[in-house]
Design a protein around this nucleic acid. Structure first.
Length: 200
DNA sequence: AACACGATGGACT
DNA sequence: GTCCATCGTGTTA
């Protein structure tokens, strides 16, 4: 089965639509390929999104054309990968929260400190960034064509579960509660399993 | 120039 | 459950 890059049109929809559809898709860098197992949607108007205080040099990719990366540094340590969604000019993104290794397990383990193969390798957005060797310079780069990082088609998962997003206590109560975090149902390669609801 | 604050992860009680 | 490293970014002055 040969994986092809997802076309720009795939991303040109609302973050809430694109997010669950990204489950099972793949992120391919030179050294590794990861299956996306858990994501969070940050649609336009979301009080938890980086777009909430307007456009700045850092978050500008969120307003740019869909299908590009938005990478930012969190807590001075972790590089987080988002995929830009929605129409050009409308800020939307999907945060990649967890993955399962498909290719380059040895490289992933090395970048993650040599820990055992298993979910702890990739169950968190910072860990995914570390495994991909993400650099802030990648922010704004396209993911729909061959390059440092490409998002490829992949098998559709059997089911999806959802729950509230993680680490957004500063947002409005309604947005904190919104079930905008999606994961592959019954998948071990996810983070914060407790707050993920039953499969739908 | 100074400051406050993270869409976290790992170590620890 | 608690604590906190670490630094880019946005805000204020």
């Amino acid at each position: 089965m040969s994986s092809t890059p997802l076309p720009p049109s795939f991303y040109r929809r609302d973050a809430l639509i694109v997010a669950p559809e990204l489950l099972g898709k793949r992120l391919a860098s030179r050294a590794v390929t990861l299956e996306i197992t858990e994501v969070e949607a940050y649609p336009p108007g979301d009080s938890a999104a980086h777009s909430r205080h307007g456009r700045t040099p850092r978050n500008a990719p969120m307003w740019g054309p869909p299908g590009h990366a938005y990478v930012y540094l969190c807590y001075g340590v972790h590089r987080m990968l988002n995929i830009v969604t929605n129409d050009d000019g409308e800020p939307g993104a999907v945060l990649i929260r967890a993955c399962r290794p498909i290719r380059g397990l040895d490289v992933v383990r090395e970048r993650r400190g040599g820990i055992a193969p298993g979910p702890p390798l990739l169950d968190g957005p910072g860990k995914v960034g570390q495994a991909l060797g993400l650099d802030l310079a990648l922010s704004g780069a396209p993911l729909f064509e061959r390059g440092p990082l490409t998002c490829l088609d992949g098998p559709r998962p059997g089911g999806t579960s959802c729950g509230p997003r993680v680490g957004i206590g500063y947002a409005n109560a309604a947005d904190v509660r919104a079930p905008w975090r999606f994961a592959i149902a019954d998948c071990a390669w996810v983070s914060h399993r407790r707050s993920l609801g039953a499969p739908r």
